[in-house]
Simulated assay, not measured.
Amino acid sequence: MSTSDFEQDHDREPAHTHDRPRGSRKRILIALIAVLVLIAAGVAAWLFLGQPSDIFDTNAKSGQAPYKSQEEMQAELDRIVEEGMFNISIVSVIEFADGESAGNAYIENVPGNRYVMKADITLDDTGETVYESKAIKPDSYIESITLNQDLEPGNYVATATFTALDPDSLEEVGKAAAKVTLIVRK
């Protein structure tokens, strides 16, 4: 090594004299992340658990006000139940002259229903859907139906499933079913 090389090496400062050792930086970064996670957890806990517990009036009592008569209380309970209910109507036996003819089913969406209805008929033994209606408004009915397929002569045990749809969004809100018999004459 020459003198000039030696002098140049001593003129340079070591690379890490002013920096912390590498392991120390990792520990500080991990500690900082841990503190941030704890702060985030604390904020989340405060948001979910720290809500005021006194939002409900402590003077409120459960049930209906006592000045109401028994009939008024029952009428209110009946009204609440009725809001979620719907009625279905279809004949229990639908006869077809042959597998391609129409049969009187009288699928009805009764006037008191709040929902739009759709109906389908499925054979119990095979699970095949042999009839599907489009939407039926309340206070409307479908008198006769034609099956989706030509069934052989015979009696078929089936299930008519009514699907209630919200009148505004047309989203399904419930279903109800009734047993029916399909009779194909020839």
Rank of each mutant, 00 (worst) to 15 (best):
P111Y: 06
M117R: 02
I94W: 03
K68C: 00
A75L: 05
N109P: 02
L32P: 03
I121P: 01
Y141F: 15
G99C: 05
N109K: 07
I88V: 05
A31T: 01
S140C: 14
L36G: 05
A60C: 02
I33G: 01
R25W: 02
Y115W: 11
G50Q: 13
I88G: 00
M73R: 14
D124C: 01
N109M: 07
N148G: 10
D57M: 07
H16A: 15
F86I: 07
L147V: 04
G23V: 08
P138C: 02
D124V: 14
V81A: 15
Y115Q: 05
A45E: 09
P14G: 13
F56I: 08
V37I: 15
E83Q: 12
N113I: 03
W46D: 05
V81N: 08
P21I: 05
E100G: 05
I39P: 04
V91S: 04
R25L: 04
E108P: 01
Q74L: 14
I55F: 13
A75Q: 12
A44R: 10
A60L: 12
D54E: 14
Y115A: 05
L38Q: 06
D139V: 00
Y115C: 02
V130I: 15
S144F: 01
M85I: 00
N59I: 03
Y106W: 07
Q149G: 09
T122Q: 01
E82Y: 11
S140E: 15
L49V: 12
V43Q: 08
L77Q: 09
G63H: 03
T146C: 05
A102E: 13
E83W: 03
T129F: 01
S144N: 14
Y106P: 00
Q70Y: 11
A31Q: 00
P66E: 15
G23M: 05
P111N: 08
L49K: 07
W46L: 05
S62T: 12
D78H: 09
E95D: 11
K68M: 09
G112F: 09
V110M: 04
E132Y: 09
H16I: 09
D124T: 15
V110L: 07
F86A: 07
P66K: 11
V130A: 13
F56L: 08
F56E: 14
N104F: 05
I80G: 08
A60V: 08
L77W: 07
G63A: 11
S89C: 02
N148Y: 03
S24D: 11
S89Q: 04
